[in-house]
Design a protein around this nucleic acid. Structure first.
Lengths: 124, 124
DNA sequence: GTCGTTGCAAAGCCTTTGCAGGGAA
DNA sequence: TTCCCTGCAAAGGCTTTGCAACGAC
C-alpha cells in the first residue's frame, strides 16, 4: 500500500529522533503537539502502528508502564525502569544465560529483561 | 479491615491450588464457575486484589498476555510463555547477571525475565 | 442485626474504528 | 482529481465502581 508523507507523521518521527529512550503514548502525543498542536491521539495511534509495521519503530510492553515505543535498529538490548522519574532507559548488552534457564524439552526463541530501580539522577 | 470467608473467595483460592502455573482472569473466572456457577467477574477482580494485598497471590504483568496471577511464596523465579498453547510456565532459578547490566550510577532493585518459545508439548 | 461481600449494571481507562472533510501527489 | 490521512466522535476490550440484596459471624 502506498503511504503519504504527512506533517503529522513527520512530527511523530521527529519526536523519536530527539529521544534516546522509549516513549509512552502520553509523551508522544504531548511532544508531537508542540510541533503540530492539532495532533490527535488517534492519528498518533495510527502512525505508531504504521511505523511499527514498516520496521521504523519497535513496540515494547512494559510490565509496569504499559505500551511504549522506541526506534528500531539498536540491536538486542534491555530496559531499565526508574521508579522515581518513571523513565525507561536502554541497557546495552545482554547478561542472560538463556540456555541455563530453559527447561528440558522446551525451545526458547527469545527473551525480554526488565530491570527496575533508581536512575543516576534519582538515586538520592 | 476484617475479612469474611466466602464461598467465592474459597473457590478462587481452590483454582490456584490446583494450578502450578500463572493464570489469567479468563481462566480464573471459568475455572471458578465450575465450582460456583454464579461467580461474577467483578467478584473475581475484587478477590484477586484482596489476595494480592494479603500476600497470598502475586500479580504478574506479562508483556504478551497481560495481567496474570500466581501463588506467592515460590521464591525468585521467571516465566516462559509458550506461543503455541499460550500458557505461562514457571522457571526455577535465575540466570541473570544484574550487576553486569546495570549502568554506572544506577541502582538496581530488581528485575523480571520473560522467555518465550515452545513448551515441551508444543514443540512439534 | 451488622456490615463486609456479591451480582448486576454502569462507568472508566486505553485503544481502535467509522466517517466526512482535508491534503499529498 | 484521486484517495490516503486526519480529526472528531463513537465504539470496543479490560478493569473498577455504585448500589441494593445477601450472607458470614
Amino acid at each position: 500500500m502506498i503511504r503519504r508523507t504527512t506533517s503529522q507523521k513527520k512530527a511523530i518521527q521527529e519526536v523519536f529522533q530527539k529521544s534516546d529512550r522509549p516513549l509512552g503514548i502520553e509523551e508522544i502525543v504531548s511532544a508531537g503537539r508542540q510541533i503540530i498542536d492539532s495532533l490527535d491521539q488517534s492519528t498518533v495511534y495510527r502512525n505508531l502502528k504504521l511505523l511499527v509495521e514498516q520496521g521504523w519503530l519497535l513496540k515494547i510492553s512494559h510490565p509496569a508502564l504499559g505500551t511504549m515505543y522506541e526506534r528500531s535498529g539498536k540491536g538486542h538490548h534491555h530496559h531499565f525502569h526508574c521508579r522515581f522519574c518513571n523513565k525507561v532507559f536502554e541497557l546495552p548488552g545482554c547478561a542472560l544465560n538463556e540456555e541455563k534457564l530453559t527447561p528440558a524439552g522446551f525451545v526458547t526463541e527469545g527473551h525480554e529483561v526488565f530491570l527496575f530501580g533508581a536512575c543516576a539522577s534519582c538515586k538520592n
